[in-house]
């Protein structure tokens, strides 16, 4: 329900959402295949070492239309049925970070603010006056600044990093809801059908009731 309110706010009033006192813009996701492929590429390099996407399988990527060569490259000698399990063992992760990095399959759905939250988080790293790494959105984070945004002040480079974060978030949004495109497409047909049917039902109702007068 809260998410619904957030969506309403974003789409109707074009307003901003507050999470942990940081402004999350409405970034929107790029659902085009090239963006998803770029995002997957970045994710396999930057995130996949530690994070799993245990509900996403390599065959899902090929079935959706990802470039077969790329999928085979990511997959290595694992079967297509294998899930995108991170390379880091849980025990070593606990040793390094004190906790197991969360699974990313549903990350976009599991956070208030969805893609906006994750995007703002990825580019939210900064260096505190004390010289320590922190994050505007999630100060307690254990994750290092993988995109290297905290050390960059050059606007051109920052824009480039923001583009990378956007691609990663787009891929994660797809991973969390792989049937979204299909759902929307089917939804348009259903809505058109229902509008026509309801108009017909209204006409029938009026005709039948007109017999009374």
């Amino acid at each position: 329900m809260r998410k619904f309110i957030v969506i309403l706010m974003l789409y109707c009033f074009n307003s901003v959402v507050h999470a942990e006192d940081v402004r999350l813009g409405n970034i929107g996701v790029d659902a085009s295949l090239p963006a998803l492929e770029r995002g997957a590429d970045l994710l396999m390099n930057a995130c996949h070492n530690c994070h799993s996407l245990k509900y996403v399988r390599y065959r899902d990527l090929s079935a959706f239309g990802f470039d077969k060569k790329k999928v085979d490259g990511w997959r290595g000698d694992q079967p297509p049925e294998a899930a995108l399990i991170g390379l880091l063992a849980d025990e070593s992760a606990v040793q390094m970070f004190g906790k197991v990095p969360p699974d990313l399959s549903l990350m976009i759905k599991a956070r208030e603010g969805g893609e906006n939250y994750v995007y703002s988080y990825l580019i939210g790293y900064y260096i505190t006056p004390e010289g320590l790494l922190s994050n505007h959105v999630f100060p307690e984070t254990k994750m290092p600044d993988v995109l290297g945004v905290s050390g960059v002040t050059d606007p051109v480079q920052r824009t480039e990093i923001q583009g990378k974060a956007h691609d990663i978030v787009s891929f994660l949004a797809w991973a969390a809801d792989p049937h979204q495109e299909e759902r929307h497409r089917l939804g348009y047909y259903v809505m058109v059908y229902l509008l026509v049917l309801t108009a017909l039902l209204f006409a029938v109702k009026n005709q039948i009731w007109s017999r009374l007068k």
Partner: peptide
């Protein structure tokens, strides 16, 4: 009209 609606 009723027939069309019923079929739809």
């Amino acid at each position: 009209l009723i027939k069309v609606t019923a079929v739809a």
